[in-house]
Amino acid sequence: MAEVTERRGRGTARDIARRVFRYENATLGIMLAAIIGALALATGGKSIAIKNMKMVVVEGATMGVGAIGQMFVLLTGGIDLSVAGMAFGTSALGSAMMTTQLWQNILVKNSILGYTGAASIWVGVPAMLAMGIGLGAISGLFVSRIGIPPFIATLGMWQVAHGIGFLFTGGFTIARMVDPLRFFGQMFIYGFPVAGFIWIVVGAVVYFVLHYTSYARSVYATGSNPVSAWLSGVNVKNTQLSVYMISGFTAALGGLIRTGRVMSVSYSSFDFLELQTIAAAVIGGVSLFGGKGTVIGVVLGALVISVILNGMTILRADPFLESLVLGVIVIAAVAVDYWRGR
């Protein structure tokens, strides 16, 4: 007893450090800090200027929000390759509804509901999010009810969503959206970007869901072992369906943020988003084999990628080097995932 007390008494910095290190996301946090530090040195402090940090958050939010949805899919042992297509498809719908360039506005062109001008964000944004959920539900149904491998179902859905996007934009870049759309990508509240707030809110809600609801249990159970999950009464099919709907929703939300920032949409706006979300999730410690991962890790993972991409832009690295670096990061993260599991 005395010993225990004494031990507790020796709660020195070293003990605290040891406990922090044992925490699973600590390595990641330290890695993030190290990368930020290294890039700050390399760029002569430019990368840690407040203005640039805000940029990192806004840029990262699209990927970060999408990665949270991706995490749900990965937790059930699936994978969502349709994120980029979904983000483009939904943003194309939203921008084609909310553009003030009337010859591009699908509502005006087809005189739907008697529209003669651009739709307000109260109509356009819910339509985008609903489309994301709907397309997600379709891939979810293919995966859960027919048993198509998630990778094929979502790869096909990527194509379909991308095609639908072309349908809405006619292959053009759509710009001149209604002004309130700026809110999602260009506005700041108390100096902190709205996009960052959206990211935090989504993260907090998901954190709550994953820690305090029975839904989380069924997601993790489905991912660790679908058969035993089914045997213990989890509705595996509906769980699978729901994660693809969540991922569709977050992809649409990510699309909304980027559309609000750039205030235009083109078919290449979301290139490589699916890879980035997978990379963020895997770096964040989500296992590709299902059943393991936390939302805090995913947020940190998305920040790591965002910081690296931003740093490369500041350093004027060859933009094509970005895809090389991303590829290496993904493979390295999966390798680490494997070694950790062994």
Binding site: I79, F151, F272, L275, I278, V282, L288, F289, D318, F320, L321, E322, S323, L324, V325, L326, G327, V328, V330, I331, V334, A335, Y338
Partner: peptide, 23 residues
């Protein structure tokens, strides 16, 4: 050798391939 899922490995290799070609 590392038991990594082929989907992710080749996705990464795909990226690297394009990166090298661009470079």
């Amino acid at each position: 050798r590392f038991n990594m899922p082929s989907l992710i490995v080749t996705f990464g290799v795909w990226q690297i391939g394009y990166g090298v070609a661009y470079y």
